[in-house]
């Protein structure tokens, strides 16, 4: 445990030696995550947690997850496939994420391959994953995520160090290496039988978000969220979503998002669908 603490502190320190802006990746690829305003860091969401907080992967017996997102009037498309498996207190997982442009104007694609491991006790879970980057303009790239979830009573707390040691070699002339600061993310959640609220703040990228899930029946929930960022220009996105959970082992998530709806008459990010299958039902 001490070693992990030392590594965590080391990576936190490394995050101070920043190199500019954060890694430009699609970091909210799940319809569930989008409808929750990105606040999935405190949630044991199964294999989709690999994209948020690897500690959240430690849920149930594991399962498969797939999500398809069409961003910005459909010009950017993202597919996210993830899986996890339980072995005692340990969970092992992996994922593949592709981001590509949908029109002929630009032929572009990007791939992220991730391998993850998590360990869970009754009230605490820790996890880590490593990510490899490839793509049209990426020679190769690497990053590492570390996360933990701590549960006490109705409250859940999460701390994530995202994109630690992130470095990508870009296809330029000659190829250039760009390093990115590790992102410090903190989340707080509260859950009872009537609702589930989760929040997060990314201190490095200046993003924040909050989401609420209201179970209507045993299987069916409605979800709402807000994600914003503070920088040269403030952007905001309100989301709504539906969740069908653990119906014959399947979860289905649908989200509908309004990005900067005050500025544009049309919806930039209208529709996202995700599906999850839980081993063991």
């Amino acid at each position: 445990m001490k070693k992990i603490t030392y590594i965590f502190i080391l990576l936190m320190a490394f995050s101070v030696i920043t190199f500019g802006d954060v890694l430009d990746e699609l970091d909210n690829p799940s319809a569930y995550g989008i409808s929750m305003g990105g606040a999935l860091y405190t949630v044991y969401a199964g294999s989709q947690s690999i994209a948020y907080n690897p500690a959240g992967m430690a849920n149930g017996e594991g399962g498969f997850f797939f999500s398809h997102v069409e961003h910005y009037l459909g010009v950017v498309r993202n597919d996210f496939l993830a899986g996890s498996l339980n072995a005692g207190n340990f969970y092992f997982g992996g994922s593949m994420q592709t981001t590509r442009t949908a029109e002929n104007y630009l032929n572009y694609s990007q791939y992220i391959f991730s391998g993850a491991v998590a360990y869970r006790t009754k009230s605490i879970s820790i996890g880590t994953d490593i990510n490899g980057f490839f793509g049209t303009d990426i020679v190769n790239g690497f990053s590492m995520d570390l996360g933990g979830i701590f549960q006490t009573g109705n409250y859940t707390f999460a701390a994530v160090l995202k994109n630690a040691l992130a470095s990508i070699t870009w296809q330029s002339t000659p190829p250039t290496v760009e390093n990115y600061p590790a992102e410090i993310i903190v989340g707080v959640g509260y859950s009872n039988s009537s609702f589930d609220v989760n929040t997060f703040v990314n201190f490095t990228s200046k993003e924040f978000g909050a989401g609420i899930e209201l179970p209507l029946t045993k299987f069916f929930s409605i979800v709402g969220g807000y994600k914003g960022s503070i920088g040269a220009q403030v952007s905001n996105a309100f989301s709504t979503g539906l969740a069908i959970k653990n119906y014959l082992g399947f979860d289905l998530f649908v989200s509908y998002t309004f990005i900067d709806s005050a500025s544009f008459g049309q919806l930039l990010n209208p529709f996202t669908v995700s599906m999850n299958y839980n081993f063991g039902g």
Partner: peptide, 14 residues
């Protein structure tokens, strides 16, 4: 009115 977004939905140009 023109906005430039990154993949996280942050506005990087206007």
């Amino acid at each position: 009115k023109l906005y430039v977004y990154d993949m996280r939905g942050r506005i990087v140009g206007f």
